[in-house]
């Protein structure tokens, strides 16, 4: 009876996993096959699509642009969010409730809706924003915000903030120094985990990139979309390369969070 039940549970779990894994696996096989027409199995295998991809300067450029945007956006987010959370937790703990509501905004408002307003507001700004990476960097900060706030706020609740700062004050450190030397090292893991998580999220962002910037500054996702007319094998190699990168980032994030709880 017990074994029978376990068997049912196992088959449910593995069917769903198979369902989730099929598109990834098929894309992988497709990227490795030399040609795969109207048949169920491919004709032969080769790495030529990967070499075609990795030698395409347009791909390298797009990848570089995406890295630049994502890393700048995360730097901006860190610079804006870290002092904000510290001030909220140390001086105005009551604000935490309001912040928890505010950070829901980027979730609740679909990116398409935000981009309508962004396009109109900044279309005629003196310093050109639309069509440049700067608008994406600033907008991506709002996407990363909920992840970063939650992760860092969780780290703040696990440390004894008041006592640590008081101790540092007693020893003659200023609040800024105490924050940088005492508090920051305690937040490192939570911060890094949230950064890797946000990074994988931002690298996959398409809506803002397409509507606000489009082909004027071709990021990885835009490049991927523009390549849709080329060989499916080529786009598969592209999707798999992208996915391997994302996989690495989420893996790093999950390792860091696990380390945090131990």
């Amino acid at each position: 009876m017990g074994n029978n039940k376990l068997f049912i549970h196992k088959s449910v779990v593995y069917s769903v996993i198979t369902l989730l894994f099929t598109p990834i696996l098929t894309t992988f096989i497709y990227s490795l096959s030399s040609s795969w027409g109207a048949t169920i199995l491919p004709d032969g295998f080769s790495l030529k699509w990967y070499s075609a991809l990795l030698t395409d300067p347009r791909f390298i450029d797009a990848f570089g642009r995406s890295l630049f945007i994502c890393i700048s956006a995360l730097l901006l987010a860190t610079v804006l969010v870290l002092p904000m959370i510290f001030v909220v937790f140390y001086y105005y703990p009551k604000l935490d409730k309001i912040m928890n509501l505010l950070i829901l905004l980027p979730f609740a408002v679909p990116p398409v809706v935000s981009s309508v307003g962004l396009l109109q507001l900044y279309a005629e700004s003196k310093f050109q924003l639309i069509g440049t990476p700067w608008i994406l960097i600033a907008t991506y900060f709002t996407i990363a915000l909920p992840f970063m706030y939650r992760a860092i706020a969780n780290s703040f609740t696990t440390i004894n903030l008041k006592d640590l700062i008081d101790a540092a004050h007693l020893l003659g450190a200023s609040t800024t120094k105490a924050f940088l030397l005492v508090i920051l090292p305690n937040l490192k893991k939570g911060l890094l985990a949230s950064l890797f998580l946000s990074f994988s999220f931002l690298l996959g962002e398409f809506v803002f990139a397409n509507i606000l910037v489009g082909t004027r500054y071709e990021t990885l996702q835009i490049y991927l979309y523009n390549m849709r007319q080329t060989s499916g094998h080529f786009t598969s190699a592209l999707v798999m390369t992208y996915f391997a990168f994302i996989f690495f980032c989420t893996w790093l994030a999950s390792r860091l969070t696990r380390g945090n709880t131990q």
């Binding site: 408002v109 809706v113 309508v116 307003g117 907008t139 709002t142």
Partner: peptide, 9 residues
């Protein structure tokens, strides 16, 4: 980048 676009809309 979050509130003003919503208000505009």
């Amino acid at each position: 980048f979050q509130v003003a676009p919503m208000v505009w809309v």
